[in-house]
Amino acid sequence: MTERERFIKALKREPIEGHCPTFELVFYLTLEAIGKIHPSQQRFDQWSQMSRTEQDLHIAYMADSYIEIAEKYHHSAIFVHPNPGDFENTLRLLACIREKTGDKYFLMMHGDCTFEIPNGENMFAFSERMYDDEEGLKKEAQRRLEDKLRYAEKMAKHAGLLDGFALCSDYCFNVNPFFSPAMFETFITPYLSALCKGYRDTGFYTIKHTDGNIMPILDQMVQCRPDALHSLDPQGGVDLAAVKKMYGDRVALCGNVNCGLLQTGTEEEVVADVRRCLHDGMDGWGFVFCTSNCAYTGLPLERYELMNKIWWEEGIYG
């Protein structure tokens, strides 16, 4: 069974043997880990001026960096961040990874259309719109949804390249969601639900990510039927065992390793947290082991490797 097949089984909450699958939304520490610059840290100001050969070399370099990280840390899935991100170059990068690895890995890309927590500059204006321009905001949400579904239909015509979309609009702070449950029901749920259905109908899996305390809106998120929920942020008070108990029969779960402890905790605390996560997550099926965010810039690599080592030694079914 390939890593891709194992990952899909986890998303479907089906039994698998061997290791519980693992991946990261982003693994920024490529330079330290494999000596390659992460694709998102590269700039191509003169891309269109390059010869096709030079472009191919850059694409192969980016593909290699994704593949080498996946191989080094036994990831089952690769989250591709195409750079440049236009459709043609996205296809070229996906095709290059497939040429080099076949169907070994589950490939995913960004694909959310729903509103996220606005940045500090726009937060006030966005909040005002929720009160003063409900219909206008709903129309905007619908337009964004239709754009994403059109993209998925286009991508679906290139069968065998992409497996799924990660929906990464953040909804929650550590203390609470930005949106009240009522606001979420009005401005997010209908569109998230339609997005998951649309992707499902075109043959793509969905992993819904958000940081923070999701508990007040968790039921609505599950009702939208993503294949998996990602992050399950312990810094936002999310209890993996409790979520598993409540929703484990309806959605797969990914994440929950405490990034705060990875950064500033003692080694003993990290080890204990990783073991807790494996214990709670692997109880039953439908779990993908990973950090509760990503391997972000500034995270000590040795901490990620410690977490990965424990998973490799202990994250085994049966």
């Binding site: 937060m123 006030f124 966005f126 909040s127 005002e128 929720m130 009160y131 702070f173 203390v175 609470n176 969601p177 930005f178 949106f179 009240s180 606001m183």
Partner: peptide, 14 residues
């Protein structure tokens, strides 16, 4: 006490 959410605070401030 988490009884209201950020947008509600912002429009109250407005």
């Amino acid at each position: 006490t988490n009884e209201v959410y950020v947008p509600e605070v912002l429009v109250a401030a407005r």
